[in-house]
Structures are given as structure tokens and as C-alpha cells.
Amino acid sequence: MLELVDISKRFKKVEAVKSLNMFIEQGEIVGLLGPNGAGKSTAISILSTLIEPTQGDVRFLKKSVIKKPSPLRKAIGVVPQEIALYPQLSAEENLLFFGRIYHLKGAELKQRVNEILEQIGLTEKRKALVESFSGGMKRRLNIGVAMLHSPKILIMDEPTVGIDPQSRSYILETVKRLNQENQMTVVYTSHYMEEVDYLCDRIYIMDRGNLIASGTKEEIKQILSSENTISIQANRWNDTFITQLKEHEYISNVHVEEKEITLIAPKEINLFSDIISMTEKHHIDLRSLHVKSPTLEDVFLHLTGRALRD
């Protein structure tokens, strides 16, 4: 349905996206996962025809849309990362404004505005000015505006940034419902692994402009099928302990946080005794030691050596 073919984008000296290939089929939710600066927003902007790639092609229904973007533009609704709303207009006025620029009129426009307000749970706040809204309400209206003209594809660029867990959950449920009830195709970018894990059928993982993995959730997790994630918890660490962990022949991707170290090791090797002896040697006050099945976060750590939110 929608394809990015060997897309690259260079901004002066920075190559934001490098040879990206991606396809989106009708009715699926595709996730684009990566840390800040991975190139997700650039990829989304190219996908939605807002910027032209330096190289490569964007195809919608097998036709290039780089020079003639209007067929794709009619079919997409874009939820930008920013709150792209008029703060001094009410929720209803914002929807009416964007409805009008999509040439909706009269009773049809009013009906659509009512439906959207219902879907995003802002019917009671329809007359309130956007500037008085909470972050979550603004995000919901931001999504509502993109759905106003009933697009076939909803492209969402980090739609849950900076909001409370309740609003995040509401947004995720709304996206899921739109996909299931209306068969809406969704492209969802995030650096929250759990959101992509919950919503998406297929996932593309990006880092520093490169596509580093793609496939269904199961296929991606399969990358680490022969390995385990080990989590070590303690009150504090010392550098020599961490150095020794990193130098261990079977340990890879040591990621240190304040009270937790995660590392990846082969399933067939039992490292418990090694780790315990290391903690004793370096006077580490060990609290717990867990072995976990790999998550998307672990896959990312394995592929890049960095955590998603680094």
C-alpha cells in the first residue's frame, strides 16, 4: 500500500536517514522504534510527503508520490509530535477550522466534529479553550484533528510524549480501537518500547539513521533467542566491577543504571557463580540477580549497545 524505497535524507552535513526501506500494508499497525535522534521523525516526514528525500522513492498504491503527493495526502492523517493546534480556539473551533480546510461543510462537518469529540473523549470540553487543556487532552485533540477527514492511514509521530499514564493508556486504546473497528492503517513511532510492543503487528527499529531490524515482534525477539538477559541489582557499583563484567568472555551489552545492571549472555552458559564471586571480590552489596526472556528493549540494547532512552 505504502512504501519507502531506499530512502536517504541529508541535512547539510548530517545524514538523518540512510537507505531506509519500509512497507506498510492495509489494516496493519506498523511501529517505528528508536531513540531520540534515530531518524524516525525524518522518516515520518518523508512518508507523509512533508519533506523530499535526498535519494529514493515514496510509493503509494505502487505510484511515486514525491512529485505528485496529492493522492497520498488525501489518504493520510498526520499526528505531529508537536501540539499543532490553535491554543486560543476551543476544541470544537479547532476541529471546525481543520474540517473546513479539508472542505468539509455544513451538517457533514458538524457530524464529523461530534463523532471525533466522542472518540477522543472531549465532548464535554468542546467549548473550552485549548490553552486551558492538560497535556493529555491536547494530545487527544491533536489526534482527533488528524482523523477528521476520515483518512485511510494514520501516521502518528510520538503521540504520547510528555503525558500522564492515564492519557497514554486512553490514546493507546483509541488507536487500537480505530484499527480494529475501522480497519485503519496506523504508522506509529515511539521511543517507548512497551507502546510499540502493545500496539504493533510489525516493527522497524532505527538507530542513527539506519534501519537495524524489522519484522513482527516475535521475529525481532527471535534475534536474541539464543541469549538471556541478566539483571543485577545492588545499592551501588564500582568501576572495577563494571570493567570486569565488560571484559567477561560470555557477557555482552552491559548497560549500567543507578541500581541495576542489565547484560546479555548465552542461554547455555550459567554465569550465576561468576557474577556472585565478582560481587564478593569487589564488595558489591548484591540485592538480586534475575534471568529474563529478551524484550524489544533488550534487542535494541543488543543491536546498538545503547538503551532506547539513552
Binding site: 496529492s70 509530535q81 481543520f98 479539508y102
Partner: peptide, 14 residues
């Protein structure tokens, strides 16, 4: 433009 409103309008038929 900074708020993304401009992009939203560019994608519309206007």
C-alpha cells in the same frame, strides 16, 4: 511553522 500547524495545512487541500 514551529507548532506544526503549517505542516498540517500543507497536507490539506488548501
Amino acid at each position: 511553522k514551529r507548532m506544526g500547524l503549517w505542516d498540517r495545512m500543507i497536507l490539506s487541500p488548501i
